[in-house]
């Protein structure tokens, strides 16, 4: 670091012709001498962007929740009030929507957990190494297909005379149609890979020798799962539930596409930004999922799950 930028004498070494000689660049020399300036040059743009665009926006959201809308002009007016929050928390309509959203998020999480556990176990512990790689990629690929397209795909599946009805007809099952059940099914479908991956990683970290030791000591497979595998897996399971739970909590597109008249918290937020044009109220509603997720993260923090995210 003590070295100054020096121009090599022309032709001083054979390599000089291939390495371009730095021009007499004052900026470059200055930067070379001062690490602090180099750091400032690197950090200013990205940190400035994050703070000015994102942090400022979040802070503004929090403040806007305490403002009102002028009923005549339809513009946000900076009159302070807690009415928005009080309405969200005490009005039975919004209480019901909050509870329904919570119920949907919990149902989705449980369904995904039930589907992901045996599958992740099979991929991590039963499948051969070659299959294992292939199956992981097979889980990853649909994860990258558009979220919108996946919800739309379920609109196709659930449609009148669609695939599900055709499949269900021989056994007397009907398509649930568009509604709350459809929302739960579709959200479980969309977020399933986010549950499989952390649980798979969790199983993969449990050494085979541990399972063998348990079996050598006389434990049946189910006992091994209960006493050895499960305790080691808890952080991974919680990591998976964070995804499925919080992603479902903020959803509104799926509710719009397959939900029929089902309203979730996201639906209310969206309606108030658009048609109803009441941004302060939308901001107040959006604080509910933020609060629930923060609370959930706070509860699970002690399990160490946040490190396996």
């Amino acid at each position: 670091m003590a070295l100054q930028t020096q121009h090599p004498a022309p032709g001083a070494s054979p390599a000089a012709s291939t390495v371009p000689r730095p021009k007499a660049n004052k900026v470059s020399a200055l930067l070379h001498r001062s690490p602090r300036l180099r750091l400032a040059g690197l950090i200013t743009a990205p940190a400035g962007w994050l703070v000015l665009v994102y942090i400022a926006a979040l802070a503004a959201l929090l403040i806007t929740a305490f403002w009102t809308v002028d009923t005549f002009t339809g513009k946000v007016s900076t009159v302070w009030t807690t009415d928005n929050l009080v309405t969200v928390l005490t009005d039975p309509v919004y209480q019901r929507i909050t509870l329904r959203t919570l119920w949907i998020a919990i149902a989705v999480t449980v369904i995904d957990l039930v589907l992901a556990l045996p599958m992740a176990f099979f991929i991590a512990k039963v499948a051969s190494v070659r299959w294992q790689k292939l199956l992981v990629v097979a889980v990853l690929m649909p994860l990258w297909a558009s979220y919108l397209v996946k919800a739309y795909a379920w609109r196709n599946v659930l449609a009148d005379g669609g695939l599900l009805e055709w499949l269900g007809a021989p056994i007397g099952l009907e398509s649930p149609g568009y509604g709350e059940t459809a929302v739960i099914l579709t959200l479980s479908y969309i977020w399933l890979p986010f549950m499989i991956l952390p649980i798979y990683a969790g199983f993969d970290r449990v050494p085979d020798s541990l399972l063998e030791a348990s079996s050598d000591l006389g434990a049946k497979p189910l006992t091994t799962v209960r006493l050895v595998v499960f305790p080691l897996l808890v952080p991974s399971i919680i990591a998976g539930t964070i995804f499925t739970f919080s992603l479902s909590l903020g959803d509104y597109i799926t509710a719009q596409i397959v939900g029929g008249t089902t309203q979730m918290l996201g639906t209310v937020v969206y309606a108030n930004v658009g048609a109803a044009n009441n941004l302060p109220f939308a901001a107040a509603v959006s604080l509910v999922p933020i609060a629930i997720i923060t609370l959930y993260l706070f509860i699970v923090r002690r399990t160490g799950a946040l490190n396996s995210l």
Partner: peptide
């Protein structure tokens, strides 16, 4: 900070930026 936009639900990012652009 850099992870925050992906850690919070999209709807929060969406409404926060909408509010920032239109209201503020």
């Amino acid at each position: 900070l850099v992870i925050l936009p992906i850690a919070l639900p999209g709807i929060v990012t969406g409404i926060a930026l909408n509010n920032m652009f239109t209201t503020i």
